[in-house]
Nucleic acid binder design. Structure first.
Lengths: 144, 144
DNA sequence: TTTGTTATTGTAAAAACTTGCAATAAGGAA
DNA sequence: TTCCTTATTGCAAGTTTTTACAATAACAAA
């Protein structure tokens, strides 16, 4: 998995183009790991590519997510964040402290099957964010 | 289930107050049913209560959702919409045409159990929106 | 009633996000 | 290489959403 333009053929195959903007944004996503807001991504990518504008960042992130190169999910605040698309997983966010963990997709596999059966929909593959109360906050609650 | 201030005791019990703004917004949610954007709610509620402002609408919706009187979910566009909290359900949205269906919570019940076991989190109760391709669009796809 | 506490609202301004359209540049073909 | 097509970007302006703080008004208690 070379660091950068490994993605070019993926895009070209679908008639899309690789641009310096897309590369800069992918680069940020690759090297930051955690979930980033569009604004954070904009600020970091702008360092690599000074001319970059905000609308381009928003459009690019949406584009990358649609094409499977990035993945979007809703942060605790309800805002959309992005990360590089790697292994498929979901999130559980603590409603109380905002702490966030990942759970593998395996747990949801059978639900997705059932949903497809029950709804008639196909290709259900959304990333999902759940909300709950984490172990730490369950403790705190007892004291209060 | 009387139409309006049935909610008052619920709020007071938790130290909150019922206000004309909250009543107006609840009234809109009750009588519109479908998922409404904050802006739509603002416009409709303003007719009932002309002085109402947008920040109040946003804050009130968040407040109602936190307190179980309303429920929020992400529309296909990625924007947050609200509806009155009634029976618990989830949504599946068609990635292609935006068509949206409801699925009861029963299907997810056991997943939530597993998630709690696997993650150590408790009280997981999020409303979830899935994306897929609806029966109609599966047809269309074959032709194209 | 009247008063006091404080949850809630409005105001004003900023930040986040979107949209339409003209200019640019990626990359296939000549 | 150069040209052409058109995907993609930047620009400019709009809309949506958030924030801080002072003014207001619920409602419990006197």
């Amino acid at each position: 998995m070379s660091c950068s333009s490994d993605y070019v053929p993926q895009l070209r195959a679908r008639g899309f183009r690789m641009t310096s903007q897309r590369l800069a944004i992918l680069h940020v996503l690759r090297h930051e790991g955690v979930h980033l807001s569009p604004t954070e991504i904009y600020k970091k990518a702008r360092i690599e590519l000074p001319g970059l504008t905000e609308p381009t960042v928003y459009r690019t992130l949406e584009f990358l997510a649609e094409n499977g190169l990035a993945r979007s999910s809703y942060a605790g605040s309800g805002r959309l964040t992005y990360e590089i698309a790697e292994d498929e997983h979901h999130h559980v966010i603590c409603r109380s402290c905002g702490n966030e963990i990942e759970v593998g997709h395996a747990l949801l596999e059978s639900l997705y099957q059932e949903l497809e059966t029950a709804s008639g929909f196909k290709h259900i593959d959304s990333h999902v964010t759940f909300f709950g109360v984490c172990p730490g906050c369950q403790q705190d609650h007892k004291e209060t």
